[in-house]
Amino acid sequence: MSRIDAADLAQRLGQQAEAVCRTYLSNGHRQGNYWQVGDVRNTAGRSMFVRLTGPTSGKGAAGKWQDPSEGTHGDLLDVIRESLGLSTFADVLEEARRFISLPQLESVPNTPTPKQPPAPSGSSEAARRLLSMSSPLKRSLAATYLRGRGITNLRDTDALKYLPNCYYRGQGEDQTKTWPAMIAAVTDLAGKVTGVHRTWIARDGGSKAPVDTQRKAMGGLLGHAVRFGVTKEVMAAGEGIETVLSLRQALPKMPMVAALSAGHLTALVFPADLRRLYIVRDNDPAGDGARDSLVARAFDAGIEAITLSPMLGDFNDDLVTRGPDALRAHIRVQLAPEDVSRFLAQDHLTCRTG
């Protein structure tokens, strides 16, 4: 489905703007030439206005909406997405086609709301729906992207998924776009999904997508993490997914977690059986602050804390620039002696793609 096709669907929905609003924004009402409702998620109220009349495209087009209270705006495809809590652009287009195929509904008040209740935007439930729409990482464009960053060992990476069409809207952009994305599940200690992290990828998998904000998280993140392997008495914890996966090329058997930011790393909830924590440090002031805070918390909990420091900015820089052999040699001298034979990859054969 091209952007032109999507624009045509948006225009056709605009020709039935009131019917769309009665269906997907049923908690609102008509006010002159506008539909008035609380927000794009169909909350009762009066903050959001949808144009019911106007040209098919351009300024003042029918179906265009804005919500001054949230500083948001869009078209009727956005209304379908947000009101139903849909996760992929393909699902939105399918629902739009389904709606357009129905008889005209302008004169039918109180049309029943479609089958799935909306999930609040950015909520844990919306994150779980997004994850459920994703496919396995292996042999996907996301795996291609990781290989380009030197990350070839993909064992114990069930937390990572792939979505070929993931929504993206940058600051000040009128139209929602889609890009391939790596989707990471954020879970609590019991394994419950509390959020997701999205990394948008270029369409050839060779780099991140050429967008302003290439990574975004949603849902409940504080204290939780993206997890690789099953934590017992030893674990490594870092900020970024690629940083942690890069370290796993040298320590493929060590359980690790990515907290997604320095602030969230300092708030990480410790597993009950944890006895030694390796803190995967990024070489910047935020990384230093996260390390110091986590060392203090670990000490108070009776957990030994050992800092693992990169040669360059982070461990992915080390892996890409210096190579896996140099990374293993650099890590070896930082490990507790008993963990060298237990966790350190001895040669390149242990780092094959799983």
Rank of each mutant, 00 (worst) to 15 (best):
Ala90Met: 00
Asp91Val: 11
Ser87Glu: 08
Ser69Pro: 03
Pro112Ile: 12
Gly71His: 11
Gly122Trp: 05
Tyr145Arg: 04
His73Ala: 03
Arg129Gly: 13
Arg149Gly: 00
Asp158Tyr: 02
Thr157Asp: 03
Arg97Tyr: 02
Asp91Thr: 15
Ser121His: 15
Lys115Gly: 08
Ser132Leu: 06
Glu106Tyr: 01
Gly58Gln: 11
Gly148Thr: 06
Lys138His: 02
Gly150Cys: 04
Arg128Cys: 10
Ile151Ser: 09
Ile151Gly: 10
Pro117Met: 10
Ala126Cys: 10
Leu102His: 08
Lys59Cys: 00
Gly58Thr: 07
Arg147His: 12
Asp67Pro: 01
Arg129Leu: 02
Glu106Asn: 13
Gly60Ala: 00
Pro112Glu: 14
Leu154Ser: 08
Gly74Met: 01
Arg128Thr: 11
Arg98Tyr: 00
Ser101Thr: 12
Asp158Ser: 14
Thr157Val: 01
Val92Leu: 08
Pro120Thr: 02
Ala126Asn: 15
Ser101Lys: 06
Ile100Tyr: 08
Lys115Thr: 15
Gly122Arg: 05
Lys59Trp: 05
Arg129Cys: 07
Ser121Cys: 08
Asp78Gly: 02
Lys59Thr: 02
Pro109Asn: 14
Thr88Leu: 04
Leu77Ser: 06
Gly122Pro: 03
Asp67Lys: 07
Pro136Gln: 01
Ala143Met: 05
Leu131Ile: 10
Ser101Val: 07
Gly63Arg: 05
Thr157Met: 03
Met133Arg: 11
Asp75Leu: 01
His73Gln: 03
Leu137Lys: 08
Val92Thr: 12
Asp91Gly: 15
Phe89Trp: 13
Leu84Ser: 11
Ile100Cys: 14
Ala62Asn: 08
Leu84Thr: 13
Pro117His: 04
Arg139His: 13
Gly71Tyr: 02
Glu94Ser: 14
Pro103Phe: 02
Asp67Glu: 12
Glu106Asp: 15
Asp75Gln: 09
Ile100Arg: 10
Ser140Asp: 06
Asn110Tyr: 14
Glu94Ile: 06
Arg147Gln: 09
Ala61Phe: 02
Gly150Met: 13
Pro117Glu: 15
Leu137Asn: 08
Gly58Cys: 06
Gly150Arg: 15
Thr88Phe: 01
Leu93Thr: 03
Glu82Ile: 02
Ala61Asp: 01
Leu84Pro: 09
Leu131Asn: 04
Ser83Gly: 03
Ser57Thr: 12
Leu86Gly: 07
Asp91Ser: 14
Thr113Trp: 07
Ile151Asn: 12
Phe99Cys: 03
Ser135Phe: 10
Ser57Val: 03
Pro114His: 09
Leu102Thr: 13
Arg147Val: 12
Trp65Arg: 03
